[in-house]
Design a protein around this nucleic acid. Structure first.
Lengths: 191, 191
DNA sequence: TCAGCTATGTTTACAGCGCTAACACAGCGT
DNA sequence: ACGCTGTGTTAGCGCTGTAAACATAGCTGA
């Protein structure tokens, strides 16, 4: 049973309950604090410390889930990329994810995760590799690594700039169009 | 006189003192709070509210200064861009700024500034225009707007990814090299 | 000259935060 | 039956942003 109701003193699966409470708050735009998450899960404000070392650990767990979701968006239910325009759709999907789930995106990025063994680092690396693989398939001659970095950078930068309001667009459709244009523009420069 | 020492009750130029105290703390990596800034300026913890509506207003003022500095780095003391590699140097300079002044960079970006009349928005727009001008000069045939967006996005994305540890490099020289490679790789794709 | 207005600073206070320490309860193995 | 271990609670510290009430000082005009 995934949601054991709390039966008296003990909860049953508080860790999962905290994670889903935190994710819901993130999704719904509420400012989230350990205390608020605990309140939402119906436990005392210090109960989360039994399951997460500190606030950062909770955020880290959320970020890992976020990376899984992003990877699924990018890779799942999609034909393998065959040409440049397919790669542009990667960027579109990436930016769309950031704008649909802004708070989660900020948790995933936006903080240095210094711990080299951090699950987040692995998750981010998986992303980088997915990109490099796709690029290598479409453009086998190019420097896949540099190109993957560039592609990720481009998508990530646009995502951040739209998220922070540095770039603006009326609708998510317009955002998608502009991301496509930007991608095509910079890949059409040539020497 | 730019730095009137506080002479008794009144300070003289508290606003500037607060800004420079805050900037110093940002540069030196100390976590910065309104109270800490006030302490550093040698005034009571609520004095800053006479000069800044709230914490966000102080950050906003810092961000504007940051944008001016970044613009100066990008535009000042540099020959006008004449070819593609010069544009790559824009990206290198941008990322270098982010890594040299990480906390300031996070203040400049990283928060949505919803207010349309915000000085920050104008400052960011100035950046975008500088880029578009430079691109128009180098590649007059291209869609300058889309290309400027792409260039900014690429530089910004790489800056964020390095800043957050999602991409890693040993030295700032290595970062510069990789930024250059990424820029060249994505502009050499062609159809 | 001096009364008072305004700008600018201080004191006090509140609620929320992350986090720690000490304690309470429950279920498990022996 | 006993107590160990895991999981929850209560109390409390020091920090934060912010508001309200008060104090001071310097300018302005009678």
């Amino acid at each position: 049973m995934s949601t054991l109701e709390k039966s008296g003193y003990h909860h049953g699966d508080l860790r999962a309950a905290l994670l889903s409470a935190a994710m819901e708050m993130l999704e719904s735009g509420e400012p989230f604090s350990l205390r608020a998450v605990a309140r939402r899960a119906g436990v005392s404000q210090t109960a989360p410390y039994r399951h997460f070392k500190d606030r950062d650990a909770l955020e880290s767990a959320l970020a890992v889930e976020g990376f899984r979701n992003l990877l699924a968006d990018l890779g799942g239910g999609r034909d393998l990329p065959a040409a440049l325009p397919d790669l542009a759709e990667f960027a579109v999907t990436y930016v769309d994810f950031a704008l649909r789930r802004p708070a989660l995106f900020r948790v995933m990025f936006g903080k240095p995760c210094d711990d080299a063994a951090d699950e987040r680092v692995k998750a981010a690396d998986a992303l980088h590799e997915l990109l490099a693989d796709a690029l290598d398939r479409v453009l086998p001659d190019a420097d896949a690594s540099a190109l993957a970095t560039a592609g990720w950078g481009l998508a990530h930068g646009l995502a951040c700039l739209y998220l922070d309001g540095k770039l603006q667009a009326a609708s998510s459709k317009e955002v998608a169009d502009r991301v496509r244009s930007a991608f095509l523009a910079i890949t059409s420069v040539g020497p």
